[in-house]
Design a protein around this nucleic acid. Structure first.
Lengths: 94, 94
DNA sequence: CAAGTATTTAGAACTTTTTCTAAATACTTG
DNA sequence: CAAGTATTTAGAAAAAGTTCTAAATACTTG
């Protein structure tokens, strides 16, 4: 939702790992969970936070809910970070 | 120190605001504190976390401790984020 | 529609983070 | 060195975040 939510969402290692998994493509909640030693309920909690931060979105098919990366918000984060580095983004990348 | 510490450090709004302040240049702990409605002890706590994450470093002069941005770590963060966006950083920025 | 699978929600326990107050340390200068 | 200013440390209280178990919801298919 907001800038602050995105940073909060990214601050947890489990959630970053979930995002890494989703680089490969959409994945059901259950599949995601199978990569962790945690209950499905806990995974669901993390997915909710990622969803709230607009870092993922879901789509339903049959009995599954598939989660997918949403990278649009990352742009904003990159801009903020590069602003710390003293200005323009493109100018720095040679 | 580690990747995870950097994200943790960036997850707090106060700390992000401190980094924003430091864009203008080095600042003493007291000066930084004067921008917030918090005790100096709390500011000191946040500075410690930023320092541990290598996002700032300090230098002493007279009776003051000046804090300064250290942007080198941000590179790593940017790389991780851009990797989520499906690969190369420069290739995406047109 | 009943039974089964997938996922989420609720609520409690535990852990971590943030903040404060009070005291300690560090340095400067008369 | 004493007094003053700047900052940090310690420890406690409060707030926020993470995880679990148990139960609820949602959807699918025989």
């Amino acid at each position: 939702m907001a800038f602050a939510d995105t940073f909060k969402a990214l601050s947890d290692p489990v959630r970053r790992q979930i995002l890494d998994l989703l680089k490969e493509g959409p994945m059901s909640a259950g599949d995601i969970g199978s990569h962790f030693d945690m209950t499905g309920a806990t995974i669901s909690y993390h997915l909710k936070i990622l969803k709230k931060a607009d870092l993922v979105f879901e789509s339903r098919d049959k009995n599954f809910i598939y989660y997918q990366l949403n990278t649009t918000v990352l742009e904003e984060i990159m801009l903020w970070i590069s602003s710390l580095k003293g200005g323009d983004f493109d100018a720095e990348s040679k």
